[in-house]
Write a protein that binds this DNA or RNA. Structure first.
Lengths: 338, 338
DNA sequence: TTCCGATGGCAAACATCTACGACGTGGCAC
DNA sequence: GTGCCACGTCGTAGATGTTTGCCATCGGAA
């Protein structure tokens, strides 16, 4: 592949002139400009962005770490981040951590070694460790934490209103008259899970209902644990259940089916994460809809802004969710009790 | 950030020695090796992979272009590709083409400029154009086409058995006794869509049923067109419908609901793409399950093999789908007619 | 003493950007 | 009319951080 010297030779100018034309970084006379443009076209010259990155000390590449792209929560987030990044001329490097701190550190180091300009991070549980953790904590590499955030993280972050979302979901169930309300929560060391559990508890207490340990099951955000949790919880005859993510809700519905119960008649359900396909099935799930695309887009926006000026104050954005009432909560079936 | 000269200086050796230690590419005496290792640790030295890529002429980065990561078909494919790539020490650069040839060319050029070692491509409709198209056709850049393939593409490809899959799906409906079978197909310029339509036609003809134009609706693989197509098709009173992808099936079910029809009693349904959550809802959809994860993993495997030896014969892999019978086809309801 | 093998260092190459210097020309002033 | 200065252009060279071929050196063995 042709390099800048080939172009310079063919156009009979210096490489600096070629560079100036390509980057429009200095005045070049129309005559030379034309010669350069012609040579570029003839040689099908494409600047080597690796070399450019080396010289300019910026790669125009962003790293993004998500727990698992095949979990239906994440694709929209990635898409949002990517649209923003591409619009600003950045490319996205993507990795799946499986919420495994070791993998996460591995990929973080890889990103650092590849000299990404910044990182979008949906952190695995636990603090950031190792050299990469140091590097990030020191602020030398820009990072925006998404969704989950270190307790002592002072940098940029884009969050969801997990606690309020759970509160609203459970408050909705309470308004419909349910009292024995269970929860299928996520792993307690994952912050979103902890916050949703807190929201559930607060909602119950605000209505004078004492949260029962027996109605709380700790899942791991995966489908199978939804079924397992469902099988356990349903034995306790809850009137309604709040499930802390979509995949577990699906698992939960399989447990409901297994017990030959009807939803919402026998047990009502509210869950998290809305999806385009939820309108199509029976029963249609009532969910709190998190703005997934916006989450990714916002995170990218904040990171790009940070790259633009390192000394601006840290930004902490909290995106608002919205309750999306459908059938599984029973609202369309029965009248509110009070 | 420390560079290799800093390490060499601190260890009192030459950069070549440091490089030899880091890459284990030449014999270095234990004494010097120890000095180098110590210096690397003290300086928290991480080789600059941009510079390394420039020197070695390989970036250990793969580009991947998919139509849209937020379409539930693709995340599993991406995950499969990524797992393979990472296992071999490669990183993945990802872009969404929205099946738009312009965007695709843009990203292709970007990847080429970033000197990716190879590209995983789920091609947008139409031939590969522009400089990038040239470069790829000339074989100078390794590409594996996934799912869809240029008519005159001579290189590696990993495909699905679309036609057979559709054939099996429709044959299953025919075995159940349905005769008026409609199809909600994808855009005809997308190859998977064309092949699925062909499979549908062949299955009908093999059973002596004449395909009716009126029972064929051309969608665009998106949810909305599923509903629109459903509203049109259902007026024609088909006994069963084959829907060519998952998102349109969801849309179709919304049309069914709108007409207050029951599935499968009033209209049976078989569709494509299985998902973990399909077991949870009513009616459970009968699908042909495409091995999405394997598609990505295979494509990455083939690409990596190609990078290993450029002169091996082109590989063309066809992955097999499997019919997954559930409720929406009516098999669990009624007895076969014949 | 000489030769060979084992080590290690120098410098070029990878492809770019850019600071700085040089050259030429035009205008103005003496 | 001539000389000088300034500005507009362009090119040289060094910097970015690696890898690696080739050469030099040192020590030991024959």
């Amino acid at each position: 592949m042709a390099n800048i010297y080939d172009v310079a030779r063919r156009a009979k100018v210096s490489v600096a002139t070629v560079s100036a034309v390509i980057n429009d970084s200095a005045y070049v006379s129309p005559l030379l400009r034309a010669r350069v443009t012609k040579a570029v076209a003839e040689l099908v010259y494409k600047p080597n962005l690796l070399a450019r990155s080396l010289a300019t000390q910026q790669s125009r590449t962003l790293g993004m770490i998500v727990p698992d792209i095949s979990n239906p929560f994440w694709p929209a987030v990635v898409r949002g981040a990517e649209d923003r990044a591409h619009a600003a001329g950045y490319t996205l490097l993507i990795s799946n951590s499986d919420d495994n701190p070791c993998k996460q550190e591995l990929y973080l180091n890889l990103f650092l070694a590849k000299r990404v300009d910044g990182i979008l991070l949906a952190k695995a549980p636990g603090p950031l460790t190792g050299d990469a953790g140091q590097q990030i904590a020191s602020g030398k590499t820009c990072v925006v934490q998404m969704l989950r955030v270190d307790a002592k993280w002072k940098g940029d972050a884009v969050l969801l209103d997990d606690e309020d979302a759970a509160y609203e979901a459970v408050a909705h169930l309470l308004r419909l008259g349910y009292r024995r309300i269970g929860i299928l929560s996520g792993p307690p060391n994952v912050q979103t899970a902890a916050r949703r559990l807190a929201g559930y508890r607060r909602a119950l207490r605000d209505s004078g209902v004492k949260p029962e340990r027996a109605l709380q099951y700790e899942g791991d955000f995966r489908l199978r644990s939804g079924t397992e949790g469902g099988l356990v919880l349903l034995k306790k005859k809850p009137e309604a259940v709040f499930v802390a993510n979509y995949l577990m809700a699906v698992g939960f519905m399989m447990a409901v089916r297994q017990y030959r119960l009807r939803c919402p008649q026998d047990v009502a359900l509210v869950t998290c994460d809305d999806h385009p396909w939820l309108d199509a099935f029976t029963p249609r799930l009532t969910t709190v809809n998190f703005p997934k695309y916006e989450l990714g887009a916002e995170a990218a926006r904040v990171l790009l802004a940070r790259l633009g000026s390192r000394d601006r104050p840290p930004e902490r954005v909290e995106l608002r969710s919205a309750l999306c009432v459908r059938e599984s909560c029973g609202a369309l079936l029965q009248e509110p009790v009070r």
